[in-house]
């Protein structure tokens, strides 16, 4: 009976931890996506907006790294750096591609760590 109660407690704790982590990942990815949507479509004046995305990502990365593979988080790191580099260089073509890759990587993060029932 003791083992049963302990197992039930562990199962509930795991379920709670998974739910909390999924909610956190959903919320963080959602906020990141909102920030990414606010980045201008052209590199002109986009550096500050990208800086805000990077700041948000750096804040969430530590916790998200517990639930997502390093490949995923590295991909987001690289995507942010690529957008920033393209914005600074004024490379319109590269900027559009990098911005799209950043959006995809955050969506992928959300799919990997977030709730399967979440939209987006």
């Amino acid at each position: 009976m003791k083992a049963f109660i302990a197992s039930l407690a562990v199962l509930l704790a795991v379920a709670a931890a998974v739910t909390v982590s999924a909610v956190y990942a959903d919320r963080s990815a959602g906020e990141l996506l909102d920030l990414i949507e606010s980045i201008p479509e052209t590199p002109d004046g986009a550096v500050n907006s990208i800086g805000a995305v990077r700041k948000k990502w750096e804040g969430a990365k530590g916790v998200l790294a517990l639930f997502v593979s390093r490949t995923e988080s590295d991909r987001t790191d690289a995507a942010i750096s690529a957008v920033l580099a393209a914005a600074k260089a004024g490379d319109r073509g590269g900027y559009a591609v990098a911005l799209s890759a950043l959006r995809d990587s955050v969506l992928s993060l959300r799919r990997g760590a977030g709730s399967p029932f979440a939209s987006g």
Partner: peptide, 20 residues
């Protein structure tokens, strides 16, 4: 690249489910 949680969560889930 795989976080420990990707093993921890299923192991604890399987273990609890088995005992239950």
């Amino acid at each position: 690249a795989v976080p420990v949680s990707h093993a921890l969560v299923p192991i604890l889930t399987l273990l609890s489910a088995e005992v239950i």
